[in-house]
Simulated assay, not measured.
Amino acid sequence: MSDVDTLIEQVRQEAEREPFPIDVDVYKAAGKEPTQPILYAGNLKSQICFFGRDLGRDEVIAGQPLIGAAGTLVREGFYWAMHHQKPKGRKDLNSVCDRVLLTNTVPYKPPGNKAYETKVKERFRPFIARLLVIHWQGNQIITLGTEAFKWFAPYGAKGEINKFFQSSDRFTSKLKVTLTALDEQGIPYQRQVTLLPLPHPSPLNQQWYEKFPQLLQERLNEFEF
């Protein structure tokens, strides 16, 4: 069992330790065990991470984050940045996983697609932090939506994350923070990362949905492919 497999098993054990809201019906319909986390997809050696809020129905069925309507927009944009052409199908969309890490604030699907309460996010924070600090090797995190960006508040100066997100140029500016995590022996690790926030690419986000593809390309133009 690899180190990251051990991490996934520890997340599952934590999920079984005490009940919390999970959309059990969706997992059962997909033939999946509700407490088995869908922690990440992609390449742990990649430089770029897309960080979302939590899983949806399509993600549970596929067994990987960011593959529903919103995730498809992200993957299409990344594929375009790499190849300057549109993906032809699911194989092309999945190929972006060679170059990115995809994960969320909580590796489970909440009932009704409502954001998890803070206490649930905090319960799983140590595992997400360990993934980003100890297992992932990159340092550029594109956050998708308010919930995803504000997950990083504990790693900035007091009030820094909220103040940054209130600025009019938040979707073109960057913010560096230092993530911290403890390994299984309680040894501390840290990693400085750059946050590049974007709006959530949901069709329900009427203010930003049409603008999202261009904003994503502007973010990705900063990287070499």
Score class of each variant (00 low, 15 high):
N139S: 14
P213F: 06
A41V: 02
P110G: 15
K28R: 14
T6L: 15
H135A: 06
L101H: 05
A30C: 11
W80C: 05
S95N: 11
R12Y: 06
N221I: 00
R75H: 03
R99C: 01
I134G: 00
W136R: 04
K121W: 01
F152V: 06
E9N: 14
G56P: 00
E16N: 11
L179N: 05
A70C: 11
Y189Q: 13
K114G: 08
A153T: 09
N113A: 15
R99H: 15
A15Q: 12
L175C: 07
S173L: 11
K176W: 01
A81H: 14
D169N: 15
A30S: 13
V177E: 02
E117I: 01
E122P: 05
P213A: 12
K176C: 11
T105P: 03
L220Y: 09
Q64S: 10
K176F: 08
T105N: 05
F171I: 01
I134S: 03
L131Y: 06
V193E: 00
A153R: 10
D25G: 10
E76Y: 00
A81F: 12
I48R: 09
L102F: 08
E33R: 12
K150N: 13
K119N: 13
K91Y: 10
R57S: 13
L66K: 06
K174G: 02
F51W: 04
D3C: 09
V133L: 10
Q10Y: 03
I61G: 03
G89F: 05
E218V: 11
G42M: 01
L131P: 04
T105Y: 02
A30R: 02
F50M: 08
Y116T: 14
L44P: 10
D3G: 15
I8T: 15
E147C: 03
S95K: 05
G31F: 01
T180W: 00
T103E: 02
E122A: 09
C49L: 07
P21Q: 10
L215S: 09
T103L: 05
P201Y: 01
K86L: 14
H84W: 07
V193P: 02
L131S: 04
F212G: 02
A181T: 04
L7E: 05
F124P: 05
R75M: 07
